[in-house]
């Protein structure tokens, strides 16, 4: 079985401070980590076994995440490095990943993380499924593959259900749905000393046109939630107010 795992590097949340008063994000410790649920997607792929290819878009940070993925056991790593791709939004990234699937001569399963912590990009999974005209499942636990289908457990309206998709398919793996393995020390050394551990591809290598990467959204900066006013004492109908707050929390 051939599996493509989509990875993303992001700024380690433990290394940033969000200052609501200054309306600014401070980076105390620049450190790049896996998008958390992507690591669960890779672990799910490694448990399924077979031919595992990892892919990420970006520069040095993405390359480091791909090397870590190789150390964990992925067989091949593709870095999509191109200015046109750096500016692409979810629409363009889905088209680029579709081109990666074709570049690999097709795959049986694409796995990605169900959540993206630092951007509005969890939508890339279902968008890719649409671009390939494949079925999609979100928030998957206990992913298994057999007899041309993938079986998984997912929540539907607050209830856990067993479900199956016919392969090929795109599955978004739930955060914390498994315990990702730690790479063996020797593997890390092998991967970091092998210059060919990560293959680099450009938009031209993948035959991507400008229209396919055209951004449909424009970033307009950041905004911050209101500063917290602590110590607000409730009075009157306390139980009623608390119930409202808890229902919305």
């Amino acid at each position: 079985m051939k599996i493509l795992v989509v990875l993303r590097a992001l700024q380690d949340p433990a290394g940033i401070t969000v200052n609501r008063k200054a309306q600014k994000v401070f980076v105390n410790r620049p450190q790049w980590v896996f998008n958390p649920s992507d690591r669960n997607a890779l672990e799910a792929a490694l448990r399924l076994g077979g031919d595992i290819v990892v892919a990420a878009v970006g520069g040095a940070a993405a390359e480091q995440v791909l090397r870590d993925a190789r150390a964990m056991g992925a067989g091949r790593a593709l870095l999509l490095r191109d200015q046109a791709l750096a500016d692409a939004d979810a629409f363009g990234l889905a088209n680029a990943l579709k081109a990666v699937v074709h570049h690999l001569g097709g795959v049986d399963l694409v796995l990605c993380g169900s959540q993206v912590l630092d951007a509005d990009l969890a939508q890339v999974g279902p968008r890719l499924a649409q671009a390939l005209d494949w079925p999609f499942a979100a928030n998957a636990h206990a992913v298994q593959a057999a007899d041309g289908e993938v079986a998984l457990i997912t929540s539907r309206r607050g209830e856990w259900r067993q479900a199956a998709l016919t392969l090929p398919a795109v599955v978004a793996v739930a955060p914390d749905s498994n315990k990702p393995r730690l790479p063996a020390g020797q593997q890390i050394i092998n991967v970091y000393t092998d210059p060919g551990a990560v293959e680099t591809l450009t938009a031209a290598d993948l035959g991507l046109s400008e229209a396919e990467l055209q951004p449909l959204t424009e970033p307009r900066g950041q905004s911050f939630p209101a500063e917290r006013e602590l110590g607000r004492r409730l009075d009157g109908d306390i139980a009623g107010q608390l119930a409202d707050i808890l229902r919305k929390a």
Partner: peptide, 13 residues
């Protein structure tokens, strides 16, 4: 983003 720590603003065109 980051679990609601802050927001990214975007315009869909």
């Amino acid at each position: 983003v980051y679990g609601g720590e802050y927001f990214v603003d975007v315009a869909v065109t």
